[in-house]
Write a protein that binds this DNA or RNA. Sequence first.
DNA 1: ACCTCCCTGGCC
DNA 2: GGCCAGGGAGGT
Length: 276
Amino acid sequence: MPELPEVEATRRHVAPAVTGRVIDAVEVRRPRMARRHARPGDFADRVTGRTLERLDRHGKFLLGRLSGDVTWVTHLGMSGRVSLAGKGDPEAPHTNVVVRFGGATEFRLVDPRTFGFVAALLPDEVAGDSISLLGPDALDALPRTPALAARLAGRTAPIKALLLDQRFLAGLGNIYADEVLHRAGILPSRPGGSLDGGEVAALRRSIRPVLDAGLRHGGTSLDDLAYLLPDGRAGDYLSRLRVYGREDRPCRRCGTPVRRAVLRQRSTFWCPECQT
DNA sequence: ACCTCCCTGGCC
DNA sequence: GGCCAGGGAGGT
C-alpha cells in the first residue's frame, strides 16, 4: 500500500512530467474523492487554469504548489495510485480523478477503495487542514536521536502506534513500521517511553535505510497490484520484506518463525528472537 | 488515548 | 455470502 516510499517514487515520476505546465481540464468522476470540499466541483474550479509550480511531499501527502497560492493535495489512501498517460490512452478501471496538463499529459488517480482523495486549499485553509498537523517527514526531516528521545519520553502508547501516528512522524504506514522495528530489534508493543537511549538510537538509524531501500525498489506492490508506479510497473520491495506478511515463515535474519498479532486494529508482524 | 467508520476486490 | 486489508477523520 502507498506509504512514504511509494508516494516519493510516485512524486519522482510525476514531477518532471508536469512541473511548469498548466492544468487545463479536471474530471472528478467519483465525487467522494473530493469529499474535503463542500461541493465536489470546487476542486476542479480551484485548480483549472493554474500552473503547477512544484510538486512536494510531506509524509504520505503529495502537495502541489499551484500558481495563485493554491495547494493541490493528493493522498493515495490505501489502494490509490497515480497513472501518467496521454490523452486517449486506455484507462484503468477505477480511474476516479483525471487532471490534464497542457492538453495532453494526464495525471490519473486510480483508486478502487476510494480511501484516497484530492483537495485544493486556499491559503487561509492550509492552517486548518490536517496537513498542518503532520509531524516531521520521516525521510527529509527525521529528528536526531535526542529530539526523538524527548518526543518519546513519557509516552505509554505502543511504539508501533506512535510510528503510525502521522502527527508524531509523517510517512510510515503498517508495512514500513513493522520493517523498521524489526531492523531496530524492538518489539512493536513496547511503550514508547520505555525505550532506552540505545534503543532510540537504533530506531532512529533504522528508519532511513528501510525507507531508502523501499524507494530504491520502487516501493512495495502487494499481490493485488493495487499499487503500481505511474508508468505501470510494479515495485518489488515485497520480496525484500523481513517480517511484514510473513507469519509463521522464517525471520530473514535468524530463521525463527515470524509472529503475527493485531495491535490497534492493525496486523503486526515481528520476530520473537530478534526483537525485545 | 482509543474506537468506529468508510470502501471494494479478492479470497475462503 | 462473509470477511479481510488499512489511512485518516471524527467521535467519545
